[in-house]
Computed example of a mutant assay.
Amino acid sequence: MMQQFYPTATHNFQFELNKDLHFSAAHFIPSEDAGKCRMMHGHTYHLNITIAGNELDATGFLIDFKLLKELIHKKYDHSVLNDHAEFATKFPTTELLAQQVWQSIQHVLKTKSNRPDCLQVIVRETPTSYVVYRPRKEDLS
């Protein structure tokens, strides 16, 4: 994967972890406003996930990198985003995909004893287009 430099989330935590990952998936946006994107098409999505916290777990991790891959790659790789339950009532735009990835990760982080937070999710849909999702302060643990 090509090295990317992304905007950073401002915080006061001692530890910050960033994980890059990618998956291939198809989607379509069933709206007249979506133009060509109304038709089924695919992308290789590239993600950057930022997690931060002040405490490490018993192993010395903020969070194990492989957990992030299991949560996201395993779920979305080689799938049709429209078929996922979280997109049953909304279109799987890049913006909403970024938000959904954040929700999935934050839900798991809240169960960890060291309680890190997911501060941002960046989803690159094409080489020239990406979305940054940052939760509101009140949405963090």
Results as ranks from 00 to 15, higher is better:
81 L>M: 12
72 I>S: 01
47 L>C: 15
87 F>A: 05
45 Y>Q: 03
57 D>R: 07
62 L>D: 02
91 F>W: 08
24 S>L: 07
64 D>R: 04
44 T>M: 04
88 A>N: 09
43 H>F: 01
39 M>A: 14
43 H>V: 03
37 C>I: 10
46 H>P: 00
48 N>Y: 06
64 D>F: 05
89 T>N: 12
59 T>R: 10
19 K>F: 03
71 L>M: 11
23 F>T: 08
52 A>M: 03
32 E>L: 05
73 H>T: 15
27 H>N: 12
41 H>Q: 08
74 K>E: 14
69 K>G: 04
67 L>H: 09
86 E>N: 04
63 I>W: 00
91 F>A: 10
24 S>E: 15
46 H>K: 09
29 I>Q: 01
77 D>R: 01
79 S>K: 08
34 A>I: 14
54 N>T: 11
81 L>D: 01
17 L>G: 04
44 T>I: 10
45 Y>T: 11
56 L>C: 10
37 C>E: 12
34 A>L: 12
81 L>N: 04
71 L>F: 06
31 S>Y: 03
89 T>H: 12
91 F>Y: 12
20 D>N: 13
78 H>Q: 14
48 N>A: 13
42 G>V: 05
66 K>L: 06
51 I>T: 02
34 A>P: 08
86 E>G: 02
86 E>M: 11
77 D>T: 04
42 G>M: 05
56 L>H: 08
55 E>I: 14
72 I>F: 02
57 D>G: 07
17 L>R: 05
18 N>D: 09
71 L>Q: 07
73 H>F: 13
36 K>T: 11
43 H>K: 03
74 K>D: 15
65 F>A: 09
17 L>N: 04
52 A>H: 02
41 H>S: 07
33 D>R: 10
26 A>L: 07
43 H>A: 01
46 H>G: 06
87 F>N: 04
81 L>V: 13
51 I>Q: 00
37 C>H: 09
40 M>D: 06
64 D>A: 05
60 G>H: 06
41 H>L: 08
78 H>Y: 14
68 L>F: 04
69 K>P: 01
67 L>D: 05
53 G>A: 11
29 I>E: 02
48 N>D: 10
59 T>F: 08
41 H>P: 03
83 D>M: 15
76 Y>W: 14
38 R>T: 14
26 A>C: 12
79 S>I: 07
39 M>F: 13
37 C>K: 11
90 K>P: 01
61 F>M: 07
91 F>I: 11
41 H>Y: 08
22 H>M: 14
88 A>V: 06
30 P>L: 07
72 I>E: 00
47 L>A: 12
54 N>K: 10
71 L>C: 02
66 K>I: 11
64 D>I: 07
42 G>F: 04
85 A>V: 08
81 L>Y: 05
88 A>K: 12
19 K>W: 01
75 K>L: 14
27 H>T: 06
28 F>I: 00
53 G>R: 00
40 M>G: 07
90 K>V: 15
61 F>I: 01
45 Y>A: 06
